[in-house]
Design a protein around this nucleic acid. Sequence first.
DNA 1: CCCTACATTGATCACCGGGTCAATAGGCCG
DNA 2: CGGCCTATTGACCCGGTGATCAATGTAGGG
Lengths: 205, 205
Amino acid sequence: MGGPKLPEQERADAILAAAYRIALTEGLDAVTARRVATAAGISPGLVFFHFQSKDGLLQALLDVLLNGTLDALTHPSLSALAPWDRLERMIRVELDRLVEYHAGVELLFAFYFSRPDDLFRTRIEASFGRYLEAFLPVCQEVAGPGGVSGASTGVGGVSGDDLASTVVALIHGASIQAIRNPASVYPDALLATVLALRPRPAERP
Amino acid sequence: MGGPKLPEQERADAILAAAYRIALTEGLDAVTARRVATAAGISPGLVFFHFQSKDGLLQALLDVLLNGTLDALTHPSLSALAPWDRLERMIRVELDRLVEYHAGVELLFAFYFSRPDDLFRTRIEASFGRYLEAFLPVCQEVAGPGGVSGASTGVGGVSGDDLASTVVALIHGASIQAIRNPASVYPDALLATVLALRPRPAERP
DNA sequence: CCCTACATTGATCACCGGGTCAATAGGCCG
DNA sequence: CGGCCTATTGACCCGGTGATCAATGTAGGG
């Protein structure tokens, strides 16, 4: 019985990787200590040695999932663009990411809805909150002080806050669509609707 | 041991009601044969007598959840309105329903993400599909043959299909927002963005 | 009034999940 | 080399779950 063959702390990472693999392919419910251990080629007890409980393992897995989620939106290359172009770029980047990593997104939702308590939800909701905050500045810039008049609505129009929450709702909705059928997501269709709000770009001859 | 006290076929309904109550308050995982039986005041065996398996019970529960989901959108009172007004009304009705029944919506998502297999997904996706179909006609009417020009985008604009998928995505996104925090859903904000696409309503003095 | 059909019970089974733990194997430091 | 600390093992316990089943009670038809 037992001795360190990989004494390195990579063990935890290896376990997490195995858990991740199982969660992606067989669902969150399939992530059990025994199965993870088997997939990682170790003994079940080790799982509880490195993570104290199953919830510990799942929380660690969730952290892996959430890290790197927000990177693309704060990429410095965006700040050079004009507001509307930046917003368009951000949305497009997000939609593309959603389609590419739809399996991960699905897993994230599986985490969220797996239990009604706050164990996972607070983290995920915090992440969603940061999501909105990432979009707020651009949307406010785009809307201006009076809101987007859209050159069409009679009165005033859409404030920056409205636009931001709309954009986030749109992306979340697209997530679900991407999970159902990744191939059915057409970023151009969704973008067209948002960009229709843009005032005519000052004659570009 | 045992004899019919409620020989009526309401038994199945009573069991379903108990399961529904448990699912809403304690989550899908809490729906076990014993707990449901206890909540319904019957013996565990009865659950398997009326529904053959746990999956049978869950499928029946899902059916309960899906029925009545689409009623509001096909309400005949809508057909009298002008296209844009009808679209606005439909979206508003849906958003209100989402907020009111957010617990049910949450349960629906819990069903969807509870397992990667097709046991629940096909039904739910079919329901989503009908959802889109319910919005398609209005959106096509609103967009017209050339698409919504929005009076702002340079070229053409948004086709009816684009608009419909956008609207559905928006509503799905709002669902998630409603689950996180029902009080934070502002239908006006989301509607404002969509309605900004409407061409100026021909001077209404 | 019995007897058949059906609803109902509750005990019971096999199984699997999370979690614990004594035993042990390796590396490392003196 | 000898101890010591940590990683590791695998057997084990306990609780809960889905599912089965013989026994039993009730209703209703002849």
